[in-house]
Amino acid sequence: MFFHNVMTLWKKELRSYLYTPVAAFFIGIYTSLLYGFFYIFLQKYQSYTQARSIGVASNITIDQLAEGVYNNMHFFMVFLLPFFTFRLFTEESRQNTLVLLMTSPIRSWELVLAKFKASLTVLLVMLLVTSIFPLYLYLYSEPGGGPDMGIILSTYLGLFLVGCAYMAMGLFFSSITESVLVALILSFIGNLFFAFMVNMFRSEDGGLMDSFFGYTGFQMHVSNFLKGTIELKAIVYFLSFCGFFLFLSNRSIESRSWRS
């Protein structure tokens, strides 16, 4: 029954994504921006190859150039992913459909999981759309000059994990308020906080607090993944981050009926 419930709710969420222009609109923006960056990347790459061919020494690799593109992708995710989560629960409150769900034989955590799963489906679509970049590089770069597939895989794993974390946090913020605007703003702040602001607390002295803030923020983990380093502790950190916010979302939804 668990599987059936989650599947039914997941399909409903996907349908909602399809029917609301918001999701399609932001996937459009995201894709066109990234294709723009990829174009710039190709031009840079070309000028480096030309420089090398006329004998000008350049030790920049294709992977380092690609890292720049993927850093931009992470930056966009911080601002765009809230648009895929801010309506998840606020809309249920606004349309009074939370009552329907909570008086049906489904459990609140099945609902939370289904919504999270739907947001991850969108995330996968976003990442798939960009998978054409490494494919292009692989097919058209000069022999031996193509990207390192290990680094590409690690990059995508990292972006997926950090995306999961943003989605889980956004899901939580949409569960604590009935206002879409509040959910959106809180998600922005939350994303910015973990993506960049935590780093500001670092003292760079290698002390306990420094490493604490280093590990809490996403920046360090993401740049490790983009460089091709897959660390188990980073994977564990992102997964427990998601688990924590999904747990809080479930609590928040459960308590709705107690408070209303």
Binding site: H4, R15, T20, Q95, L100, S104, P105
Partner: peptide
């Protein structure tokens, strides 16, 4: 409690599913 973006059939089939 209606999903206003949905068609009547889709909505009722969803409700039937969660029931």
């Amino acid at each position: 409690p209606l999903y206003t973006d949905f068609r009547v059939k889709e909505y009722l089939e969803f409700v039937a599913g969660i029931k």
